[in-house]
């Protein structure tokens, strides 16, 4: 039925893909130094441009940063969608439920805690293997805690308040840790917690990209079940969905996505919460077969735009990207709540 509907949905998806490409090019061309589209294309496709400064800026700095933005935006947005469907709660998201804070606590315990016990294993910068593992463990632990609580309380408001409290708790523990920390570790942790898309090497990008890609692909067979879950767990079960298994897979997938992303980029707020809503508003659907690709495209574009803004084009200054996503995301969420009351029937 409604082939017209499907047609327009596909058209929007193609539009979103084009939008992503444009935003990507813009993101690469903007910055403290402006590089024209022509130059970008030359650098990317003509080998004899390898010695120019444009080449260095693009290949060594802007390109990896923009790829990081694309991967991060997609991964966080997908985790937001998964959590919103799982909890049947439009306000669910990695940062709101305290899952990002959990990842943060994992990293803080590692960076700041290890030196307290005289265990200086993490002097080098960047995301090392232990940081990634501790971020994933932190994220998954908070997720499990939230799940445990969500069995007892059904109200969305209560769940959100508990998420905020968990966030406050982890922040408190982090501040205690920072109080007793040495300056170098403290600085390392502070930079991490601002959220940053830069400083990932191609090697790290390959790892991050493969993990995210594998997780994103492994969710696809369950999209059908997610649609059934929109009706509630009992209905899903009555239609043959083994809800328990789907839940475990969704949780593991979101835990890994939020964990690895947060480990490398630091906590980046609001993307996971906001992007699914933008996608639903734009496509007027909650069908996961359409939302899923749309959210990947919108999430990537959203973070690329935020990153371009945080560069303050034609200026030397850079604002932490985490601040920009909040500055854009928070008002958007407020607007959504006021404008589309039926989105948030708490």
């Amino acid at each position: 039925m409604s082939t017209a509907n499907k047609y327009s949905e596909r058209l929007i998806l193609v539009g979103l893909l084009l939008f992503l490409l444009v935003v990507w090019l813009l993101n690469i061309s903007l910055g403290s130094v402006y590089i024209s589209f022509q130059d970008i294309l030359n650098v990317l496709f003509k080998p004899d441009y390898a010695d120019t400064t444009s080449y260095q800026i693009i290949v060594e700095y802007r390109l990896p940063k923009s790829i990081t933005a694309i991967i991060t935006g997609a991964a966080l947005s997908v985790s937001g969608l998964l959590l919103q469907t799982l909890f049947r709660n439009p306000m669910a998201g990695p940062s709101v439920l305290g899952i990002s804070s959990g990842a943060g606590l994992g990293v803080a315990l590692l960076i700041l805690g290890s030196q307290l016990v005289g265990w200086p294993l993490l002097a080098e910068s960047g995301a090392s293997f232990p940081i990634i593992i501790s971020a994933i463990i932190g994220a998954v632990l908070v997720l499990l805690l939230i799940i445990g609580i969500s069995f007892r309380v059904k109200s969305s408001v209560t769940l959100l308040i508990i998420g905020l409290m968990l966030g406050a708790l982890t922040t408190a523990i982090i501040s205690i840790l920072t109080y007793f920390s040495k300056a170098t570790q403290l600085q390392q942790f502070m930079f991490w917690s601002f959220g940053s898309l830069g400083h990932l090497t191609y090697q790290e990008l390959r790892i991050l990209g493969s993990i995210v890609l594998v997780v994103l692909l492994s969710i696809i067979p369950f999209l059908k079940n997610l649609n059934a879950l929109l009706l509630g767990e009992n209905y899903a079960r009555s239609m043959g969905v083994s809800v328990q298994r789907v839940k475990q897979i969704i949780l593991l997938a979101s835990g890994i996505l939020i964990g690895v992303i947060t480990a490398w980029t630091g906590p980046i707020a609001f993307i996971g919460l906001t992007v699914p809503h933008i996608a639903r508003l734009l496509l007027k659907t909650s069908n996961h077969f359409i939302l899923y690709p749309a959210i990947i495209l919108i999430g990537s574009s959203f973070l690329l735009v935020c990153d371009s803004v945080s560069q303050l084009p034609f200026n030397e200054m850079v604002i932490p990207v985490n601040a920009i996503t909040s500055l854009i995301g928070a008002p958007l969420v407020i607007w959504l709540i006021l404008k589309k009351k039926n989105i948030v029937r708490l």
Partner: peptide, 22 residues
């Protein structure tokens, strides 16, 4: 069931078609 459906976007045809899930 008596459970209400919160989702504001799901359309009638898609909901009925969910019956074919299995």
């Amino acid at each position: 069931l008596t459970e209400s459906l919160q989702d504001p976007y799901i359309r009638v045809f898609d909901l009925i078609a969910l019956g074919r899930q299995v």
